[in-house]
Structures are given as C-alpha cells and as structure tokens.
C-alpha cells in the first residue's frame, strides 16, 4: 500500500512540476535548442550549437528579447504585462470594495429576498462569457470603451463580483456581531462601526478575496481577446496572438514570458494555500 501511495505522489508531483521546470529551462535556451530533436536538459556554458547531447549553452537572450515586438503582436511583452497589471489591480480593488459592502449588507441587515439575490449573484458566475460578449461589445462601441483599459476593468470588476460577494459574506459572517454592538453602544454610527471595527477584522478575508479576484482577472482570456485588438491587450490575449506567427513560435521568449506571467500566481497560491478551498468554490465549501 505504501509503495502505491509513494508512486502516486511521485507521478503526480512530476506531472505538476516538470512542465513548469521545463518552462524555466526553455527560457534560457536558444530557439534552436527548444526545438531540438533531442531533449536539452543540462545547461552547460560553452556547449557548441547543434550538439546532439543533452547539454545546451544557456543564454539570457530570450529575456532581453521580451522587450522586442514580435510578429503577430503590436507591442512588447512588457507592455502587455503592464496592461495585465493595471487592469488586474484596478478591477480587483473595485471588486473587493463593492463585494465587501454588498456582503456586509447581506450579512448584517435584513434585505428583502436576500437569499434569492445571493443566488442570483452566484448564478452570474456560471454565465458563459460568450453569451454576453456581443451585446457588451455593441454597448462598448457606443460608449467608446472598446479596446480601453477602463472597459476591461469594468468588465472584470463585474465578472468577479460573484466571487467577492460570496467569499466576503463567508468571512464577514464569521466576525461576531458583538464587536459592532459594543461600538454602537459607544456611540459610533453604523458606518463608523463598519469602517473602524468590522473592516480591520475582515482584513484577512479581504486579502484572500483580492488574491482570487486578481488571479481570475489575470488569467481571463475570452473577453480580453474579443473586446480588444490594440491598446489594452492583456498577456493571455497577446500570447494567443503569437500562435499564428509565420516566423514560427519564438519559444524561448514564450517560455520566459509565461514564466514571468505565472510566477506571481505561484507565489499567491502559496500565500493563500490555507484558503484555496474556499476561494476556488466561492465560499460554498468551508474548511
């Protein structure tokens, strides 16, 4: 039994880790080495080009070339990463702010039809983006929001509301009402009690919610690609655009870029690992 268990874990671990390790290796290769018939595993400085061994000469040229504009794209990787950062952070801030307020309302007040509203909010999570993208596109054309950062910020904010409302509702429900009651007795207004007593208590919850909103906006592809062709293209849409590259895929740059793109997500995953279950299930399952 133990042998089976260890075997299962080793295989699983390799499946998860090897593609990412390979990504790191590919990013320090020459393009010829990434498409070599033999696997190039070992970075050995000074390996001659075209060598058939498993060694390859490491190079940082792909990292330098991230600043270049490739065929099939309009700007460099860094500029698209900038778009991802701006859109991700702004939409996350908006989602968490709105979601926290909304969750607080549902958590502490008797809102008529609260349960129905909450499930309405959850159901928007299941909406296929492609079922609303055309009207959104037409709407954005009218409002001149097509291809703008603001357009995507708005869309991702709304897209993540179901997540932030449900997660924050769970976190806020766990904060004892006695805290606010004491504050109200002390003469705070409701709003003051919320801002000075509840919010500090909900810090962890808000941070966790923010991480999940950020990741979801960071990774989104469907809207990013259909609503944008120029100014606000995020990294997933940029990479997808490279796929039709007639010069052949610039694999080392793709690997380097993908590595830069996924590294913060890996860090965040480690940071919120205790809350992953909650975050991934919109708080419908708690640990």
């Amino acid at each position: 039994m133990k042998v089976v268990r260890v075997l299962v874990l080793v295989v699983g671990f390799c499946c998860a880790a090897v593609p990412l390790a390979w990504m790191a290796l590919s990013s320090i290769k020459d393009r010829a080495d990434t498409i070599h018939a033999h696997p190039k595993v070992l970075p050995v400085p000074g390996t001659p080009a075209g060598d058939d061994s498993i060694a390859f000469a490491p190079t940082l040229s792909s990292w330098a070339e991230l600043a270049e504009v490739h065929a099939g794209a309009q700007a460099s990787f860094w500029s698209h990463l900038g778009n991802s950062v701006i859109i991700g952070i702004l939409s996350t801030l908006c989602s968490v702010a709105l979601g926290t307020a909304c969750a607080y309302g549902f958590s502490r007040f008797r809102v008529p039809g609260a349960s129905d509203w909450l499930f309405f909010v959850l159901s928007t999570r299941f909406m296929p983006p492609l079922a609303v993208v055309v009207p959104v596109l037409l709407m954005y054309r009218e409002l001149d929001l097509q291809g703008t950062h603001l357009g995507l910020v708005l869309l991702y904010t709304v897209f993540n509301l179901s997540l932030s409302v449900w997660l924050m509702k769970g976190f806020l429900d766990e904060i004892p009402r006695a805290f606010e009651e004491a504050a109200l007795v002390d003469g705070y207004t409701r709003m003051q009690a919320f801002v000075r007593v509840v919010l500090p208590e909900a810090r962890t919850g808000m941070a966790v919610t923010a991480v999940f909103c950020l990741i979801s906006a960071w990774n989104e592809y469907g809207f990013a690609m259909t609503l944008n062709s120029s100014d606000a293209v995020t990294v997933p849409a940029y990479f997808a655009g490279l796929a039709g590259n007639i010069e052949g895929m610039p694999w080392p740059q793709v690997a380097a870029g993908a590595l830069v793109f996924v590294a913060p997500i890996v860090v965040f995953t480690v940071l919120v690992r205790r809350h992953l279950l909650r975050g991934m299930t919109f708080g419908t399952i708690k640990q």
Binding site: F13, M23, Y221, P236, F239, A240, M249, A258, F268
Partner: peptide, 22 residues
C-alpha cells in the same frame, strides 16, 4: 508536495495551453 500539486489550477489556461503545445 501539496502546494505544488495545487498550482496547475491557478494558472491561465490560455497561456499554459500555448506552452503545452511546445
């Protein structure tokens, strides 16, 4: 081990899809 196993679900399918084609 646990955290490593959990990482794939957090990554962008669009970006990882492209990378998988390598």
């Amino acid at each position: 081990v646990l955290t490593t196993l959990l990482v794939p679900m957090m990554l962008s399918p669009a970006v990882m899809g492209l990378y998988w084609s390598l």
